[in-house]
Simulated scan of single mutants.
Amino acid sequence: MGFAWGLSALALLVGVGLGVRALIDPAWAAKFVRLKADEQGGGQAEFRATYGGVFLGLHIVALLFTLLYFRSGAYVVGVTATGASAAIAAGWAGAAFGRGVSIWRDGADTPFNRMSMGVEIAMAFAIAMPWLAWFAL
């Protein structure tokens, strides 16, 4: 079970890092997701908000719950951390599913999309490890 929690914490830390980087450098976020900000001034804010703030907020809360569980082992905190991780993992899995639909329906079968879908699946699996391990017990 310790491995599951450790892997989840590591993946959540990656999510925190992505959020911080996007918050600081929205041009990097735009390039990373292959989108372009509009010329009306709202585009950079959208990258900071969505790829920065949302990523940072979601992942850091789940990471804090996980670290509290590591520290205290409290059952309620562990359940909360497991639920938060499951919800975030579902988001990563949903992103992979959406990318898969795009590959299938839009003819977007590119090395970038295949690699991105693989990363999204890996992040979903890693973040969900405590939840999956809980069901395996």
Rank of each mutant, 00 (worst) to 15 (best):
M1T: 07
M1I: 03
F3Y: 08
F3T: 12
F3K: 08
L10K: 00
L12G: 01
L13N: 01
V14G: 08
V14F: 13
V14D: 04
G15T: 02
V16M: 08
G17S: 09
G17Y: 05
G17R: 04
L18Y: 11
G19Y: 03
R21D: 03
A22Y: 08
L23Q: 10
L23A: 15
L23S: 15
I24V: 13
P26N: 06
A27W: 00
K31V: 01
K31N: 07
F32P: 02
F32I: 00
F32M: 09
V33E: 10
V33W: 15
R34L: 11
R34N: 10
R34M: 09
L35N: 03
A37W: 00
D38N: 12
D38W: 02
E39H: 09
Q40K: 10
Q44F: 11
Q44M: 14
Q44K: 13
Q44Y: 13
A45V: 06
E46W: 09
E46M: 10
R48G: 06
T50K: 11
Y51F: 15
Y51Q: 10
G52K: 07
G52M: 10
G52V: 07
V54C: 13
F55K: 01
L58M: 14
H59P: 14
I60Y: 12
A62C: 14
L63G: 11
F65V: 12
F65L: 15
F65R: 11
T66A: 14
T66M: 09
T66C: 08
L67K: 11
L67A: 15
Y69W: 15
S72I: 07
G73S: 11
A74I: 10
V76C: 03
V76E: 15
V77S: 14
V77D: 13
V77I: 15
G78Q: 12
G78H: 10
G78W: 02
V79Y: 10
V79F: 08
V79T: 14
T80Y: 12
T80A: 15
A81N: 07
G83E: 02
G83R: 03
G83F: 05
S85P: 01
S85R: 13
I88H: 05
A89G: 08
G91A: 11
G91Q: 05
W92Q: 09
A93E: 01
A93M: 05
G94Q: 06
A96I: 04
G98P: 04
G98I: 03
G98E: 03
G100I: 00
G100L: 01
I103N: 05
I103C: 06
R105V: 01
D106R: 03
G107D: 00
G107E: 01
D109P: 05
D109F: 12
P111N: 13
F112V: 13
N113V: 00
R114S: 02
R114P: 02
R114E: 04
S116K: 10
S116F: 12
G118M: 01
V119G: 03
E120Y: 11
E120R: 11
A122D: 04
A122Q: 06
M123D: 03
M123K: 07
A124L: 04
I127V: 15
M129P: 02
P130Q: 08
A133V: 00
W134T: 10
A136W: 12
